[in-house]
Nucleic acid binder design. Structure first.
Lengths: 352, 352
DNA sequence: CGTTACAGTTTGATCGTTCACACGTCCCGC
DNA sequence: GCGGGACGTGTGAACGATCAAACTGTAACG
């Protein structure tokens, strides 16, 4: 009698086990799984039946050793700053996990020293633990990309190569990004349609490339509509309180009836300011945020927001990854996706 | 001259490379890294110098194949339900990644069919891709735990074995959990101190073990203080709107001055209801949530909440994992951690 | 002086898979 | 009837690490 399995790990079957049982050689079993069309139909069927019966799955370590491919994708999982909405990452990571499983890849998380954007990459690379990286934190330039490129390591980036574009740099790489300028243009146009003309921009410091990009959309929409933006652009840190105070300052000094914000965090700050002044969001002063984070959905009375198509970003990244890993020529090194506007009550004049 | 690396991946050095360069054998290099005290000090130093010079890191696949240990921990990363706060997971995952790196482990994410809590585990197990699992979604019983146990797979759980405890079941496993009852007791006592006596409970359906546990803390605190809870406990689904409507119903029918909620989501729903009724949170009706999610921090005017010590949960889980993987005897199979109360303005009578 | 003990190091085998190639069988055409 | 593809399957050698055991040289002991 077989022992009731339980106390000790069950030993999984190997190629040899399957081969013996099916009366063929190891290689034939291997082919049955990797190159089915090499086998005669009846052999294939017989082998697959045994594979099924024994519940055989190839040992990843052995395969990885031989093929030099781990089917793992490294992702540096940054510390979510308390108070700053990085719920974005959450949604993205999940999409990435799901998508990459469709091509047989898994996501390996690692962390690194906050001050050193390169920390962690090198070790995984040297130990050949991952096939490639997904680089996400490209907010302030992309030192990781340059580093990985110099090491000849395959990677794809969520975020365009800001530095490269400026300098006309040719050292580009595969990337996917969301058109932030388009997002805030959508937001601004939406507010213009609602009859607002004095629309303020609440953004990050000038050093943020992403922030500047988003701001340009607001600027463009306002200019196109023939409205002046002088004195309507404000910059501050990315937390609720900074947004709240900035909004108070703007409302004290200037006559504005709407805010377009570079993030939901700042948008929520504006909502707080409105509540403190006894103003009804949407009805009296409109607000639109950016990212469609959980906060935007849960804020009262609902914060309109620009939503990034993170699911599609993940899909595009994975398909680029496929090309990069296959050393295939990549026609489009960069893919720009368009965000959409989710309208909630913070930008509607009439709501129950 | 060496080619300027770049186009093609750099080939990492192996044990043999290091050995040759240091004038020793492979095994000696291996020992230098894994059993340094077996070597003569001068040899050790010489070998380590070469290791450093070449930037040698052991190939994970080869090591994994031989030692049958991947140093990877599997974590099923569930889809964050839109509208339900799973920002909790975010914080926990990051802690887990950081903590497990200290013992040389990495976190491997996988997903699975939403309807099948076991999906995904089996394949990773059979392909020996991970050393162990961290099971987190133990809200409704723990089918994963039973499954993993039957397969002899090492794992630790974030969440106590609800089923086992009821039945006096001896098939227990290593787990860490947060004392939810204690959390809501803290919340309730805090409200009692503020002079509230009619304190409602806003919870999940009866089928949720976690929900029942948290509810019991409210019940206990109320009873201990000598107050009746009859008619004060309400159950609903876990989304903002359900919380909002439930709060309206309670405020219409009964005279309550405070709410203890099973989640931040419901707490935020209560805040919405108060705003809609023109009531000032904290000042007129107090609210406390659970989880200290981003939503609680960003909600207006700040939602008091019970905070789970997720960082400590991760640390405890990793140290349990260490024991489990080492086949060491585990004295305490379960560790219960205490949450803390974060007081914000939603539960304070006086705030500017 | 021969034996034993032991620290320090090396050697061969092994983990489970895939690669490169060799082998056998069948079938076709001349 | 025999050379030669085409096709299907089997064999040995990798991949890079660790395990187990064998091998050195030196020191200690009777």
């Amino acid at each position: 009698m077989a022992q009731p399995s339980g106390l000790h790990p069950v030993v999984p079957p190997t190629l040899a086990t399957v081969a013996e049982r099916a009366g063929v050689s190891r290689q034939t079993v291997s082919n049955a799984l990797n190159n089915p069309d090499l086998l005669r139909p009846d052999t294939l069927e017989r082998v697959l039946a045994v594979v099924e019966e024994l519940g055989y799955t190839p040992n990843r370590a052995a395969r990885q050793l031989r093929t030099r491919s781990s089917h793992l994708v490294g992702l540096r999982f940054e510390a979510a700053q308390e108070g700053t909405s990085s719920a974005l990452l959450d949604r993205f990571v999940h999409s990435l996990v799901e998508t990459s499983e469709r091509t047989g890849h898994h996501v390996l998380l690692f962390s690194g020293d906050e001050d050193d954007p390169l920390d962690g990459y090198d070790e995984l690379l040297r130990s050949t633990a991952v096939d490639a990286f997904v680089v996400t934190d490209t907010y302030a330039g992309t030192p990781q990309a340059a580093f990985l490129q110099s090491r000849g390591a395959p990677f794809v980036a969520f975020g365009r190569p800001w530095d490269g574009l400026d300098a006309g740099n040719t050292s580009d790489w595969a990337w996917v990004d969301v058109d932030g300028a388009h997002g805030s243009r959508l937001a601004t146009e939406h507010l213009l349609e609602q009859g607002h003309t004095r629309i303020a921009w609440l953004g990050w410091e000038r050093s943020s490339r992403i922030g500047q990009d988003r701001r340009s959309g607001w600027q463009a929409a306002m200019t196109a509509a023939g409205f002046d933006t002088a004195g309507l652009g404000v910059r501050t840190a990315d937390n609720v309180d900074a947004g709240r105070m900035a909004a108070h300052r703007v409302l004290d000094d200037r006559s504005v009836t709407a805010f377009v914000c570079v993030s939901d965090t700042l948008g929520i700050g504006v909502l707080h300011a409105l509540l403190e002044r006894g103003l009804v969001p949407g009805r009296e002063v409109a607000v639109v945020g950016f990212d469609d984070s959980l906060g935007a959905q849960m804020a009262w009375p609902g914060l309109s927001s620009v939503r990034q198509p993170l699911e599609r970003v993940a899909v595009e990244l994975v398909s680029l990854l496929h090309l990069v890993l296959g050393h295939k020529p990549i026609e489009e090194r960069g893919t720009m996706l368009q965000p959409t506007l989710v309208v909630r009550r913070s930008s509607c004049r009439d709501w129950a």
